[in-house]
């Protein structure tokens, strides 16, 4: 439960400069499977990356990634990932239901 406690203490009322810890599933298309995307992400943005689970085949790469940083930096990191063709979903996957 430690991670949860930390996430709660980090969740403050605020703006983009406030810290945020978030968890996402990244889904890599085949052409990106061999790229060191998470390494690049860590160099481009001031966010802490923490891989918590991964499954990689020739057809799809699925990685569960924890991102820790300022909210704006986390958002920018997600936008960059999406530009690389990677689908970024919250760990809940589909929060919006019919």
């Amino acid at each position: 439960m430690a991670a949860k406690t930390k996430a709660k203490s980090n969740a403050t009322k605020g703006s983009g400069s406030q810290p945020r810890q978030a968890r996402f599933w990244l889904m890599y298309p085949p052409k990106q499977i061999t790229s060191p995307v998470i390494w690049e992400l860590g160099h481009k943005f001031p966010v802490v990356t923490n891989v918590r689970q991964a499954s990689v085949t020739d057809e799809i790469g699925i990685v569960c990634l924890e991102l820790d940083g300022k909210r704006d930096d986390v958002k920018a990191a997600i936008t960059w990932l999406e530009k690389q063709g990677i689908k970024v979903e919250p760990v809940e996957i589909n929060v919006i239901e019919s």
């Binding site: 999406e82 919250p90 589909n94 919006i96």
Partner: peptide, 15 residues
């Protein structure tokens, strides 16, 4: 976009 809305809803739910 749908993905942004989905992520924001997850964030609201967590907060």
């Amino acid at each position: 976009h749908y993905d942004e809305v989905n992520r924001l809803c997850a964030e609201i739910a967590g907060k």
